[in-house]
Design a protein around this nucleic acid. Structure first.
Lengths: 207, 207
DNA sequence: TGTCGACAAATTATAGATAAAATAGCGAAT
DNA sequence: ATTCGCTATTTTATCTATAATTTGTCGACA
């Protein structure tokens, strides 16, 4: 088989997740297992398992005998995800501070510069996520990091949904401020900036 | 059929979760889908979906071609879950305060009293969870509440694992303090007590 | 005696097929 | 004309069977 040590269900799950995040599949769309199975050249059993993963990530909702639909999102949900991210990323950063090395900070700065050169939302989002992951991973709390990652993908959905056209590369002042505070050893300052920064992803007007 | 509008996969998932939490199945145990399927009188397809849910909850870990095992837990993980709960429950409580009614607080007080009369860890845990859910649900943030709920089940695992024998009904002073602060309208005080309260579940020695 | 290799058994993962349930469409009756 | 009920189609959920991968054991050779 052409499998690369990855289960088919996982591959389908990731592919669908990317589409949902990118907005290719509209919220509320019914995901029909047979159609998806046919498209990926698989049967619908792995498709079902992929649905469960999407459900766990909050990207889809499944009603008992009525199928699976792409999760919609309201303004309240955007706010909810933002607040959860703020709380958890601050927690992660506080635990990461003692383990942050200069090498990590340098790499984060480089990633940040790359983000400023990004020409579209997708690549900017990618560097943005990399930046956050870089400075948070040293906390060594896998469950926390996974939860944050799921929230980040949810944020990405919101980001891609509305400001695709009028998007422009933000200078990421917040990232710079966080790095500066971390280099100065002021973890609390970095945490408070991070909390504000995450609050409304992409809402430059509130900065 | 005896189905109560609940999918077989969901029923199996809940049954297994209860056993894992209760410690009936030891951490590291390999969950064999055929055995589980036979026990529940089902085939292994819904069992697989149940495994995915357990995996999402952090109760089991699945390695690509090597099966599913009950997740183990270290002291670091206990600490991690506790800190996540502290951060998220505080967030939920802050958002719930404006919507808290006297009726809810009265009910919470009643539940708390019932908890003090509990004779075993299981029933105490049940009332404990009910208490937390009662005062947090009014925040109206479904995703946050679900995440907290998953963390709570993880906490329950830890709680059941060690102190089963020498357990005694705690007077739940913290719960009372939280209720008192809420009745006085002091949401911040309630939040800070809650944060401390959640930090190390069951570790009375650190109070 | 220790290690390498191959064979066999067990188990997981996927595929194809079947049955149950819900929705939608159509018809008749009021 | 509208509403209620029935039938048919679509779709989900489960079961049985098959294929592939891994693990454990046995034997031979160095």
């Amino acid at each position: 088989m052409t499998s690369k040590d990855e289960t088919i269900a996982a591959r389908i799950s990731r592919a669908l997740a990317e589409r949902i995040i990118a907005g290719t599949i509209a919220p509320g769309t019914r995901l029909r297992q047979d159609h998806v199975a046919a498209e990926f050249g698989a049967s619908h059993v792995p498709v079902r398992e992929a649905f469960r993963r999407l459900e766990a990530q909050g990207l889809a909702i499944s009603e008992p005998r009525r199928g699976v639909r792409v999760a919609g999102f309201s303004l309240d949900e955007i706010r909810e995800v933002a607040e959860m991210r703020a709380a958890l990323e601050v927690l992660a950063l506080r635990n990461a501070v003692p383990h942050l090395t200069k090498a990590v900070l340098d790499e984060a700065e480089e990633v940040n510069r790359a983000g400023e050169r990004a020409k579209d939302v997708e690549s900017w989002e990618d560097t943005n996520r990399t930046f956050h992951r870089l400075i948070l991973t040293p906390c060594g709390m896998p469950r926390l990091l996974k939860t944050i990652d799921d929230l980040h993908t949810a944020s990405a959905r919101f980001l891609f949904s509305g400001w695709r056209a009028e998007w422009e590369a933000p200078t990421d002042r917040d990232h710079k401020a966080i790095l500066a505070a971390l280099r100065a050893g002021d973890g609390e300052m970095a945490a408070s900036v991070l909390a504000r920064h995450v609050q409304w992803p992409g809402h430059k007007g509130r900065k």
